[in-house]
Amino acid sequence: MIRLDPVHVEAARQGDRAALDALVRAAERPVYNLAIRMLAHPADAEDATQEILIKIIANLGSLRDIEAAGGWAMRIACRHLVGARKSGRVESMRMSFTGFAADLEQGLSEPGASEPYDAETRLAIEEVKVGCTLAMLTCLSRDLRIAYLLGDVFELSDREAASVLEIAPAAYRQRLRRSRAAVTAFVKDTCGNVSAKAACRCEKRIAAAEEAGRISRSRSRFGLSPSGPTTVPGLRAQVRRLEEGRRAAALLRSNPDFSCDVAELVLQTIETNPIRPDGKL
C-alpha cells in the first residue's frame, strides 16, 4: 500500500534532501487514506499523518532492508494508529453499532423531486455517505477496525496484513472474520445503499446532517469535488449486484482516494531539524 523507492530511501539516509522530499510525498497520500478511515475526521487524520511521516523519516536509519521499506512504513503507520494515537473526535463519541443505527433512524426526510439530480445535492449525498461509512467503522475496536480496513478495503492478503500488524496469520483471519461479520450485519440492516429493505438513505439524511453541522453545501469537509460523486441509484445498482457478503466492502471502497497537504508541514519540520546521516532527526 505504501511504495517507497529503495534508491530514494538509501539517498535520504545519506542526507539527500530531494530524496527525502520524494519519500515524504510518496508516503503522504496512502498514510492519510489509512488515517482518515481509522479516525473518521479529516483534521485528526491530518495530525496523525504528520506524526506518522515524521516517525518514518526519523527512523530511516533503523531500517535494515530498504527493499521492504513500504511494508516497514505501513507497520509504523498501523502501530501508531492502533496503539499510540490518542482518541479522535469521532472515536470519543464511543458509538456502538446499536446506538449508531438508532441515531440514523432520527431525522430522515424526503428530498425534493429534482434534488437527487442536482450537482450540489449529489455532492451533499456523497458527503453524507463518506461521513457515515467512516463513522460506522469507529464502532469497531481499533484492532478490528485496522484488520477490516487492510483486508476488505485495501485488499491486502492475509499474510500481508498479518505481517503489517505483526501478528500470526491465524490471529489476523480471526479479527477479519469478526470485523467483517459486524460490519456486514450492520449495513444489511441499516444501509439503503446495500439493502432495499433498510430505511436509511443518504439523500434522506441531508437535512439532518446540515442541521447538525456535519455537512455544508458551501464546503466539503472531505475535499470532495462537485464533479466527482456518482449518482446514488448508480452506486446502489453496483453494490446490490454483488453477493450479499461483498456489499459492505464495496460500499466502503466506493469512498474516494482522499488527499491532504501535510507533506509541506513535515518537510518544514525536517528543515528546522535536519536529518542526520544515520536517518535520525
Results as ranks from 00 to 15, higher is better:
R214V: 11
P229V: 11
M38S: 14
F97L: 01
A40K: 00
A18N: 10
R221K: 04
T98G: 11
Y117E: 09
P274G: 03
T269I: 13
P30S: 11
R276T: 15
R159K: 10
S96D: 13
T231H: 08
S96H: 12
A209C: 13
L81P: 02
A161L: 10
A73P: 12
D152L: 07
L149G: 02
E46A: 14
R246Y: 11
A35H: 14
I167C: 11
A170E: 14
D152V: 07
V232P: 03
A58S: 09
M95A: 14
R236L: 12
L63T: 02
G279W: 01
R276K: 14
A147D: 00
A43P: 02
I2F: 10
G99F: 15
C200K: 08
L53D: 03
T184S: 14
R219Q: 10
S109W: 07
A102Q: 13
I76A: 09
A113Q: 01
S254K: 03
E166M: 09
T98R: 14
N193Y: 06
F100H: 04
E203F: 15
Q50K: 11
A196G: 11
D261C: 13
L165H: 09
R241A: 11
N193T: 02
A171T: 08
L137H: 01
V187D: 00
R3T: 12
G88P: 02
M93I: 05
A48D: 06
F222D: 01
G223E: 14
L150A: 08
K280H: 05
L39T: 15
D189H: 12
M74W: 03
R175D: 06
Y148D: 01
A84Q: 12
S157F: 10
S109L: 09
F222Q: 05
A22C: 04
R79M: 03
S218R: 06
F222L: 01
L224Y: 04
H80K: 10
T138M: 02
Q174L: 12
Q50V: 15
P111E: 03
